[in-house]
Each structure stands twice: as C-alpha cells, then as structure tokens.
C-alpha cells in the first residue's frame, strides 16, 4: 500500500458516499445517470467475487463490501425509491454498445483464461467506460448540479491517483499490470474534458454548464 493508492481509494469512497448522500438528502436523482450506476454495480460485482474465495486484509474486504453495498443502494434509490425523479429521457446512452465490446475484449485479452480472471478483466475494461452514460447525460442536459461535479471529480481523481500508484509500484516493486494500466489511462483520459470544466468553472464558484 502506498499513499497514492490510499488516497485513490479514499477519493473513490468519497465519490460513492457523496453521490449516495446527495440522492438520499435531496430525495432526488435528477441529473444522475442510472445507467452509469448500474455499470458500476456490475463492475464491483464482477471484480469482487474473490471476496468469496480469498481474504487479503480487513481493509480490502471492508472496502469491497462498502463499495458493493453503496453501489447497489444507489441503484435502488434511483430505480425504486426515487424513480419519479429519474430523468430517463436524458439518460439515453446505449450501454449495450459498451458491454458487448468490453465482454468480447475481456475474453480475448486477459492474463489467464479462467472464469474469475475473465470476470476481473471484464470489470477492469467496463470500469474504464462506465462513466460515459453520465458524461453523455450532462452533455445532453447541458448542465450539472455542483454536488454532482464534486462526485465526478472524486470519481475521476481516484483512477488518476491509481496511475501514480502503478508508476510507484513499477519503480519500487518492479510490479505492473498492463491490463489495469491501459484501462486506467483510458478511464482517466475520458475525464480530462470534465476536469478542465471543473477547474475553470466549478472551482471559481460558477455552475457547470456546457454551451448547449
């Protein structure tokens, strides 16, 4: 464990908690893409099946349980409890265009052709594009609530910090996982446009609104 991975995990945890609290407190999921949240629930489910087979550490196990629990709770709030506030018209990204290619790639390019490894690889590839429905929705509505931009910033920062963690681990431990690194680079690049808007607008107190 190094400082970059720790702060990456804390940033990810913050993102998940911010979103859950935003929906719970405002009793509304306006502006939130339910499709992205379903993809994240799939990412955690397929990646953390090793909860059933191996124990790494209390930290590892508890964080995985929290991620899975919060992601399913968020999906439940969006599609069940506060479904009346769900903006289905703007959440129209075709996720099958993500899941099918990612599934195919996971079967073709992986470290080991075993079920757990292919599911893990699928989860890594899916996570790199899981935010697209949310970014697409913001481009369609042309704006995002400030709390949603903080959620997105933490979500994007987490994998950026993981990239630094992988540089650190390569340099100090001689370890690298090309699949995780390439997917992590793609994932972080997808946030660049948002990062620019976040820094130039939200951090200056303005509302994030895209030129419609």
């Amino acid at each position: 464990m190094n400082i970059f991975r720790l702060f990456g995990d804390l940033s990810h945890l913050a993102a998940i908690i911010i979103l859950l609290l935003k929906i719970w407190k405002s009793r509304s999921c306006a502006g939130i893409s339910g499709k992205s949240q379903i993809l994240f629930a799939i990412v955690f489910t397929t990646r953390y099946l090793d909860l059933l087979t191996s124990f790494i550490s209390l930290y590892n196990t508890s964080m995985k349980m929290i991620y899975i629990g919060c992601s399913y709770a968020t999906v439940y709030l969006i599609y069940a409890k506060f479904r009346a506030t769900y903006d289905g018209n703007h959440d129209s990204f075709r996720v099958e265009f993500l899941i099918v290619p990612v599934g195919g790639l996971a079967v073709l390019i992986n470290h080991d052709f075993s079920l757990l490894e292919i599911l893990w690889t699928f989860s890594i590839y899916l996570e790199s594009v899981a935010i697209l429905p949310q970014l697409f929705m913001i481009s369609k509505t042309g704006e995002a609530e400030t709390i949603t931009t903080h959620y997105l910033f933490c979500q994007g920062l987490y994998r950026a910090l993981y990239l630094i963690n992988w540089i650190w681990r390569f340099y100090f431990e001689g370890f690298f996982d090309m699949i995780a690194i390439v997917a992590g680079v793609v994932q972080t690049i997808l946030y660049c446009d948002f990062f620019y808007l976040y820094v130039t607008k939200v951090l200056k107190g303005k509302k994030l609104s895209l030129p419609a």
Binding site: I56, N60, Y162, F175
Partner: peptide, 10 residues
C-alpha cells in the same frame, strides 16, 4: 504472474 498481485488492489 504479475496480475495476481494487482488483486490486492480495489
């Protein structure tokens, strides 16, 4: 293999 140790990451 190297990928095993990336399983200790979240």
């Amino acid at each position: 293999t190297d990928s095993q140790s990336s399983k200790d990451e979240l």
